[in-house]
């Protein structure tokens, strides 16, 4: 091969490689990239009739109704690392002429209680149901307690019940998750 061939080749390659560069750019900043999504998500809902607090077959009242559901994403390691703050909104509509005591008990895989919150629901009537809202904000050290759980137990307690009691108690709820997603070491 004629060595003269390399002259124009080299000229171009040297030119391209010497003038090409990446300037004023700091790729280290990639570790500072932080997404801060705020996610609104329904949580649980229910509607219980007044009759469920009284067992007509045995003529005895069942003062506490209890149920459990998994919330499997709650103890996901990604959420554990990213969750800064969680705002729960519980909205009760009570058409039963009784007050209620409602607790939300968060349990871990090993069924240890990691976080608990509780509220009081005002009494309403069938004609004029009463709306009680309850907000619970979880942040700081409590986040770890909340995200150690993967299920929630809901206990609805009525002070007194009888066969004549009418109406229904409804719950709607949602959580606002404030996340901070960044590169982890």
């Amino acid at each position: 091969m004629n060595t003269n061939l390399w002259i124009p080749t080299l000229v171009i390659l040297v030119l391209v490689s010497t003038i090409s560069c990446i300037k004023d750019t700091d790729f280290e900043q990639a570790s500072d990239i932080t997404a801060r999504p705020v996610v609104e998500l329904n949580l649980i809902h229910f509607e219980v009739d007044a009759g469920e607090f009284y067992d007509e077959s045995t003529n005895t009242s069942r003062l506490t109704l209890s149920d459990t559901t998994e919330i499997r994403f709650l103890d996901d390691s990604g959420l554990q690392e990213s969750l800064l703050r969680a705002e729960f909104l519980f909205e009760f509509t009570n058409a039963i002429p009784r007050t209620f005591d409602v607790t939300f008990q968060f349990l871990s895989e090993a069924t240890d209680t990691t976080y608990t919150t509780q509220t009081f629901v005002e009494a309403g009537t069938v004609g004029v149901p009463l709306v009680t809202t309850y907000e619970e904000v979880v942040e700081g050290a409590e986040i770890l307690e909340l995200t150690s759980a993967n299920r929630v137990v809901v206990n609805v307690t009525i002070p007194e019940a009888n066969a004549e009691l009418e109406g229904a108690l409804r719950l709607k709820s949602k959580t606002t998750y404030f996340l901070e997603i960044t590169e982890r070491e």
């Binding site: 649980i44 809902h45 109704l65 149920d67 559901t69």
Partner: peptide, 21 residues
């Protein structure tokens, strides 16, 4: 998606509730 609806089934000791999730 409406969220998880709890049904509060009457349970005896040791019974599991519905697998809602």
């Amino acid at each position: 998606l409406d969220g998880i609806e709890l049904l509060f089934p009457p349970l005896s000791a040791g019974d599991e509730t519905f697998p809602y999730y």
